[in-house]
Design a protein around this nucleic acid. Structure first.
Lengths: 187, 187
DNA sequence: AGTATATTAGAACGGTCGTTCTAATGTCAA
DNA sequence: TTGACATTAGAACGACCGTTCTAATATACT
């Protein structure tokens, strides 16, 4: 049935491109390209995939993208307005520098007053110069921690977003490993 | 120069597939496929792209994906361990049902004690049955709000994560539009 | 049963695919 | 300038591309 969809999705994930009609013959139960062509025409009508101007298949719904709406108060668009909703990729939106971006999982409650809880994921970028007020990943006494990057006069120090913890004034050098660019919490 | 890279990336973003060698001739300053083939061999050596077993180009670094590390305390891997880091797509990771997933921007402070601030983005899924304890987008008196979905006995009501706001007991019907699956905050 | 209709197999079409070869051109150092 | 090497143009190759046609088969309904 529609396991053809899943086959195509699986192919796309591993090969990072859409299969050709000849490859779909091997993937599917069809024995000829024309049968596949017929089946694809229906999948195209359903909006699952599209055809290039050269005829090649291009993905539509299996490419990671979300509809971007406005404020919560505005709510959801009617089916008629649905087409107007901007669709975008979270990857492209959140990640500017792919090579230097990492995701870490948060442990502890040192940034709880900044709305960053244990178990959250933080998207960090290495090799970026921190500005005062940024949340950074730093190495103090050989251990990694997440803190606010603060500046008072000429003194640089680290501050937690939790009254339980005292500010950290670096003894000698302060090694900032990465700057937190985004927080992601899943339910 | 290496604007060829950018051309390829632009092509990939718009066409959602890699260009063929013939298309690269039109894109680039080269006038023949063989020259492009030569240039691509160097880009492949640099790890920017790869070749399929059929010879077709497949993307490597321009596909949206982040390196997934462990806890913050574990820090960043050494260059030698770098290869071991799991890479993944945020889209694939966060979005289960593409058709029903939307992103909304938060206004107000009704969920502030749940670590959801004004300006944050919430990733919601429509048409999902809410469970008690879920954060939901609901329509009360014709307006959309984000609240906890609570149950006391047989009574369903909405509760804000902010002592300023009182629980909302629905007068007649309670219309739940979507369930919040993730929160994303950008700095 | 029969009869429309939907789906598949098979073959053939022109076109493009990636590859490879040779020859021409550009680049750089001695 | 000369020579060694890197890069490009051009043409040709077989293989595969998506498309289209006809004929065969499956499916659904009366």
């Amino acid at each position: 049935m529609n396991s053809l969809r899943e086959k195509i999705m699986a192919f796309y994930k591993t090969h990072r491109r859409m299969p050709s009609y000849g490859e779909l013959v091997k993937l599917s139960a069809y024995k000829t390209k024309s049968a596949v062509h017929y089946a694809m025409s229906k999948l195209i009508d359903s909006g699952f995939v599209s055809r290039d101007k050269t005829g090649r298949l291009i993905p539509r719904n299996l490419t990671g993208s979300v509809r971007m709406l406005g404020l919560i108060e505005a709510g959801f668009p009617s089916p008629a307005e649905e087409e107007l909703a901007d669709t975008m990729s979270l990857d492209d939106y959140l990640i500017k520098n792919k090579e230097a971006t990492y995701i870490l999982r948060v442990k502890g409650d040192s940034m709880i007053d900044a709305g960053i809880y244990e178990g959250d994921m933080v998207l960090v970028e290495r090799g970026k110069n921190p500005k005062p007020g940024d949340i950074v990943i730093a190495q103090v006494d050989g251990e990694y921690t997440m803190k606010y990057y603060r500046q008072r006069g000429k003194t640089i120090y680290l501050e937690a977003a939790n009254a339980k913890y005292k500010p950290i004034f670096p003894t000698n050098e302060l090694k900032i490993d990465a700057v937190v660019k985004a927080v992601i919490r899943q339910y």
